[in-house]
């Protein structure tokens, strides 16, 4: 329906609808705009601008000085690399282990399956925070194989930030729900043809699983990139392994440089935001396609 054929009433209703949509959009976006604009302003102006609409506008003494200062204050490049490395590794391992496990839960009959599945699903209601301190004592006793032979204790490493986070019940659950709706006969036919379980997994099932893979990847990405805060503080002492969220603490000194804080928050947020905006269709479509199964 084009604008020309609309009655006046229809037009004004459409206008009202857009105004409502835009008003709501403002509510969702204003803190983000405030953050980005503030990151360009010197401290005193940033604080005085909160009194007016200027808080959301790039006006006054605008520069990238805060960014320069932030990069001088903390090794931001290193932190971003660490975060992305930890996030990407966890994500890949997670996708593989969770989907393989879900495959066996849905397509294969094996002794103890229902028991194992029940335990896995039950851990969904075990928040990480409840086990953080005992886990710290535990990872400190675990062995690791490196070029220097077997070493004990995982503190100060990438693996301590990766491996405990690889598998969570939610991911397995999402895969299971998705696999349940795939046509069973495809799998059974391949089985009759003599395909191995693993062949069926990666030749038949995984190619059909785009949406759920995307969903798990997104949720895991957000969890790992955004929420790694308490755990790294506990297990990582060397600067070389610190992720980006821990870096925030570099900015809370006596006389907090608020402009730099805003710059750092923007730097933290930009990669996710770019990633999201580039892939937003896939983002939303995939969550939508896996979300409905109750």
């Amino acid at each position: 329906m084009s604008m020309h054929t609309m009655s006046l009433g229809q037009q004004s209703r459409l206008l009202g609808r857009y105004l409502l949509l835009m008003f709501i959009a403002c509510i969702f976006i204003f803190p983000i705009v405030f953050m980005m604009m503030s990151s360009l302003k010197p401290d005193f102006q940033l604080l005085s601008d909160t009194a007016s609409i200027r808080a959301f506008l790039p006006v006054g003494d605008i520069s990238l000085d805060n960014y320069r200062a932030a990069f001088d204050r903390a090794p931001i490049g290193l932190f971003i690399f660490n975060s992305i490395f930890i996030t990407a590794t966890t994500l890949l391992l997670s996708l593989f282990l969770a989907s393989v496990a879900a495959f066996s839960f849905v397509f294969i009959d094996w002794r103890g399956k229902s028991f194992v599945l029940a335990i896995v699903v039950a851990t969904y209601i075990l928040p990480f925070e409840t086990v953080a301190v005992p886990l710290l004592l535990l990872v400190n006793k675990l062995p690791w194989l490196s070029s220097e032979g077997v070493t004990w204790g995982w503190l100060n490493s990438y693996q301590v930030q990766i491996i405990p986070w690889v598998v969570r019940a939610l991911e397995i659950f999402l895969f299971v729900q998705y696999f349940k709706d795939l046509p069973k006969d495809l799998v059974e036919a391949a089985r009759v043809d003599g395909a191995s379980w693993f062949q069926i997994y990666y030749k038949i099932v995984m190619p059909l699983s785009g949406p759920v893979i995307a969903t798990v990847a997104i949720l895991k990405f957000l969890e790992m990139y955004n929420n790694q805060f308490i755990w790294p503080t506990m297990v990582v002492q060397e600067e070389g392994y610190r992720p980006i969220m821990v870096g925030l603490q570099y900015f809370f000194q006596l006389n907090t440089p608020w402009g730099e804080v805003m710059a750092y928050l923007t730097i933290i947020t930009l990669p996710v935001l770019v990633f999201y905006l580039a892939l937003q269709r896939a983002f939303i479509a995939s969550i939508a396609s896996t979300g409905v199964k109750g």
């Binding site: 710290l136 004592l137 400190n140 204790g153 503190l155 100060n156 503080t233 506990m234 297990v235 990582v236 002492q237 060397e238 600067e239 821990v246 603490q249 570099y250 809370f252 000194q253």
Partner: peptide
């Protein structure tokens, strides 16, 4: 030398002490 943000310095030391590190 290894530098820590002051906010979490004590936490880091406690965790490291626990680990004998």
């Amino acid at each position: 030398i290894e530098s820590f943000p002051q906010e979490s310095y004590n936490d880091s030391v406690t965790a490291a002490a626990l680990a004998g590190n």
